[in-house]
Design a protein around this nucleic acid. Sequence first.
DNA 1: TTGTACGCGTTATCAT
DNA 2: ATGATAACGCGTACAA
Lengths: 343, 343
Amino acid sequence: MSGKSGQPTINDVARLAEVSKKTVSRVINRSPLLNEETRERVEKVIRDLGYVPNPQARALALRRNFLVGLIHDNPNAQMVLNMQHGILEALSGTDFEMIVRPVDRTSPMMLQDVRTFLERQRLFGVVILPPISENDALADLCEELNCRYVRIGSAELDDADHMVASNDREVVREATEHLIHQGHKLIGLVEGPDGFRSAQERRLGFEDALKSAGLPLPRSLIARGNYTFETGVTAANRLFDLSPRPTAIFASNDEMAAGVVFAARERGIIVPDDLSIIGFDDTPIAAHIWPPLTTVRWPIVSMARAAARKLVGDIVGGESAEPQPSVLPSMLVKRSSVAPPPS
Amino acid sequence: MSGKSGQPTINDVARLAEVSKKTVSRVINRSPLLNEETRERVEKVIRDLGYVPNPQARALALRRNFLVGLIHDNPNAQMVLNMQHGILEALSGTDFEMIVRPVDRTSPMMLQDVRTFLERQRLFGVVILPPISENDALADLCEELNCRYVRIGSAELDDADHMVASNDREVVREATEHLIHQGHKLIGLVEGPDGFRSAQERRLGFEDALKSAGLPLPRSLIARGNYTFETGVTAANRLFDLSPRPTAIFASNDEMAAGVVFAARERGIIVPDDLSIIGFDDTPIAAHIWPPLTTVRWPIVSMARAAARKLVGDIVGGESAEPQPSVLPSMLVKRSSVAPPPS
DNA sequence: TTGTACGCGTTATCAT
DNA sequence: ATGATAACGCGTACAA
């Protein structure tokens, strides 16, 4: 090594391989115009030395960091963490690292904050999680700042290069049909908050199923929550006050579904004998409450993995990068919270 | 601006303030040897220009990134995410960002992986989460690589500068005493996995309480789990098979406690009438199962915040940085899973 | 196909 | 107290 500081630099490699820095640089960046023999010689030196390009220097020269940002606005912990796992899975073995950035959806400074963040860190790209992913201004901002981005959502929010989505509407329709096939005719909906695309898509799927079956859907059978356990309890109680009472409830996520289960128990309503419940997400809570919850498994990890691959695929995959899917299927997971209605 | 690329650089500031780059650099880095007048002039230009130092260039020159790493080995999602929140809270408003690094505790490559990671990214420092924080070799590695670190754990693992801990033993003793005061004499323990300091501390606290009360603790009343819901179920069933059956159970974390509740329901054992249960962590699941779980609130966010402040305090706080606490108290949260034993 | 010279934006050295 | 100049390690014109 030239210096004393430990890591070998590109100069060390160049000297030992008896070529110029530039040639080493070409090897690293897989330049096609290179003598095969030269490349091998350089690669051998690189291996022998254990040389790894310095990310800081690359970032400075390229005006772009080898970091993938994760922008989210704190939906629920399990989802965020699963997304992180998916992204890190896709990034493992590459030079990329993940940097996490929570934002406040309700703050008027949100866009400015993100702008500052992106300008400063010069990220390679960002993955944007729902629900903030539905914000078009944010996507435009990324575009403007020349920062790649992929949005994850419950519907096709953007063109295929900038989006990974799930088929919420379709799968909720299936879930609701499962309830209908069991014989339920009075089915309540605990829907997600206004302005969330996921809430909207899931409601549409719910309505699709009821419409196809010729079942009526009075406004009173729909109660809104905001994806938290507590609002699930409240919404359920509103539904329980109805007469006749619904014999089944679809909740737009598991937390609210857990709230419904909780509220039912408080009232002495037995699940699933008196009331069937289906949730959405398949977070751990779904399997851990009593009775275990029938729910929709949302392919979080796969979506995140696909998003990250879409972002860095060109770089790490070279020519061989497989195109990543833009729509990933959810599936119904049947457990014990659904039964035929009481006779 | 000199260039066209948007952000002003240190050169722009120097030119407009009619000083050298180095002087600007001194202003930025709060060098004490600076004419007050010069400093103010430069600061004004900096404000007017909206100049912000380029982190990539700084990283290269300083051989140190302005990034704080979070090293964890996937304990549970809620904890990891809360830790992230705590760290980001401490970092917000500073130039630091957080980069997340999960590792595999069981892999023989773990240390090598971390070494590569730290050498490459040249992090400013890392926060290490339990249980991997208990690994002394990892701390030594950080030391060797000249990377600051703070370990978070259930006991004092290191000197005050390198550690933030909770008082698990003490608070579990209190929790157990709560059970004893209710009249329970046959109390089971679902303990955490072997080799985890948290498991050990909590068990010690449990034993302390029983010993003080003069209660016997036959080996059969202790069942081991590995902090997952499923092992909680298994351990509970082992305890339920005992005759006489314990009238109360302390579980070393909430997930296992939820498993105990689940197992009890499967057997028709009513909580808390037939069985009292206390958990540990106060994750959301504790409040969302039925009955709501009495548990120990573990100050995760505060610990993470303190850890991050300890890491970057010297830099961002200047002289005024308050020393961060090294031991944070947990507290018992009483809900509905505890009652006097059946008569 | 390969090399030379310079730029990226900052900090450090050593003068003055 | 301040400034000229050289690192820091890599990428890119442009030349050879």
